[in-house]
Each structure stands twice: as C-alpha cells, then as structure tokens.
Amino acid sequence: MPPELHFILLLVLRMAIAAAFVVSASIITERSGPVIGALVATLPISAGPSYVFLALDHDAAFIAQGALSSLPVNAATIILGLTYVVLAQRHSLLVSCGAAVGVWIVLASIIRMFDWTLTAGLAVNLVAFGICIPLLARYRHVKMPLVTRRWYDIPFRASLVATLVAIVVSTSGWVGPRVSGVIALYPIVFTSMMVILHPRIGGPPTAAVLANSAWGLLGFGMAIAVLHVGALNFGSAIGLSLALATCITWNLTLWWNGRRKRMASA
C-alpha cells in the first residue's frame, strides 16, 4: 500500500473513532440535564482522542511537553466560558459565542509564545479558576426548557471533533508539541453546545450548562498535569490512563457530592 494512502486511511479511521466517541458522549449529555451534562462535557471528549493519536505517532517526551502547553490553555477555556455566560444573558449567539472564541484565540496565541513549566501552568489555572468560579456561581441555576434534538446536532459535533483530530494529527510533526498541545485543547464541546443550544433554548439556559462546567473543568486541568507527570516518568500509555482516571474520579466525586447535598436538603 502506498504510504500516502496508508496515512489517509489511518487518518480517516482515527477521525471516525473520535466521532463515535463524541456521539456517545453527546447522547448522554442531552439526556442527563445541565449538571450531569456539564460533568460529561468536561471529560476529555475531544482532547482525549487527540492525545491518544498523538501518542501513537510521537514519544512520551512529546506528549509530556504538549501537556505543559495544554495546561494554561485550560485556564483560557474557563475564561471563554465566563465571557460567553455573561454575554449570553442579553446578547445573541453571534455576539456571545464570537466574543468568547475571540478571547480564547487571543489567550491561546499569547500562551503559545512561552515555554511553560508545570508550576507556572498550575498557578495560571489556580488564578483563573479562583476568579471565574465565584463569578459563574450566580448563573448556574436556571430552569432548563425541553430540548428537542435535530438530526444534524450530533453529526455536527462529531464532525467538529473529527476535524480537530485530523488537524492535530496531520500537523503535529511540523508544528511541534507546544502548538499541538494548544490546538488539542480547543474547546470543541463548549463551542458546539453554544452553537446548538443557544438558538433553541436561549442564552441563559445554555449559559447555565457552561457555568456548571467550571468545577469539572478544574478537574480536567488536574488531569492535564497528571498526564505531563505520568508521561514524563512512566510513558504515554500510563500517563494517558492516569489522566483519564483523574477526570473520571473528579467528576464522579462532584456528582456524588451534589447528590448528597440534594438528599440532605430534601
């Protein structure tokens, strides 16, 4: 088989696997409400497949370095969320989503310019989440209207994630781990939620889903740090496994804590 055809077929297979993953997660999110949906949305739905496929093409040092660049990008994502949540209370999808994505691109462009250490990345996350989580708290509790899924919703999300995987995998060899780590963490799930839900149920309910995602996103940042340390010391496979376990454990803890509080108040 010619090398070019082998690369194309392998790339298509990877895109299909990523798309199948996001379709499954999307169905769970839509059927579980804003709180559980937010926790599912902060699992590594798009970044996970991107990093798995990067690990198949590159060594553990590449993955560890990429994770260092991804860590401060996670802080940019929570700022994207805050920007959208505030603007969505009164403005259209175009204004709210456009401004949020614009803020993320500016911050990611700045992040790309620096060589990050684990300490610096964690510090940026602590500052960003320390500011954003209290500001997002007032927007979390909104009555959610019934969402009717349309035929193109899940294919749209799947195509976005598949495209992201294709970009990360096909460009990683010449852009290097720093840029790959930035691209891998583009908030595809958040963006697709804005685009799909805002016109249908309005800005405030859509914003509530993103506002509820703040604590889950904090755990995702911890998972990125675990990925860096794990890949650096034990290899990519163990690093990725530990990062996924961190995300799942953190989100299950959040879910259990919320359930316990609801039962106590009842």
Rank of each mutant, 00 (worst) to 15 (best):
N251G: 08
A243P: 00
S192Y: 03
N212V: 11
L11M: 14
L126R: 05
E4L: 15
A231L: 06
L210V: 13
F220W: 09
S241M: 13
V35F: 15
V23N: 03
V101F: 05
S236H: 07
A231E: 09
M144H: 05
R31H: 11
I105T: 04
M222K: 03
H58L: 11
G181M: 05
A16Q: 11
L11K: 11
F156I: 06
A225R: 01
L122D: 02
V35I: 14
V106L: 07
C132N: 01
F21C: 12
A67K: 04
G173N: 07
V35E: 15
L197P: 01
S180D: 03
V168T: 00
F114T: 08
V85N: 01
A41Y: 07
V161I: 09
G239D: 12
V209E: 01
A225Q: 02
A184Y: 04
P44Y: 12
V22A: 05
S236F: 06
V165A: 00
A20P: 00
A214N: 10
F21V: 14
H228N: 12
Y84Q: 10
P155R: 02
F7H: 13
F220H: 05
V101R: 03
R259N: 14
S26D: 14
L94P: 03
S213M: 13
L80P: 00
P3S: 13
T191I: 08
V147D: 04
A128Q: 02
V40Y: 07
L136D: 02
R14Q: 14
A223T: 07
G173M: 11
Y186M: 11
V12L: 15
S46F: 07
H198A: 12
A38H: 02
I248C: 08
L39E: 10
K261D: 15
G121S: 03
A120G: 02
V106D: 03
S24K: 08
A162R: 00
W116V: 01
L146H: 10
G130Y: 06
L232K: 13
Q89C: 05
A16S: 10
I63F: 02
L82G: 01
L240A: 03
A211L: 08
W215E: 10
H58M: 11
I248F: 11
C132V: 11
P134D: 09
W256N: 13
S180K: 02
V229S: 07
V73T: 08
G230Y: 11
T119M: 11
N74L: 14
G81S: 12
L82E: 00
R14A: 12
F62Y: 12
I28D: 06
V161L: 07
S24Y: 13
V101N: 03
I188V: 14
V103P: 00
M1V: 14
E30V: 12
A88P: 01
L107T: 02
R178A: 09
V101P: 00
F129V: 06
A99I: 10
R178Q: 07
F21Q: 05
G37L: 08
V12C: 12
A264C: 15
I224M: 01
F53D: 00
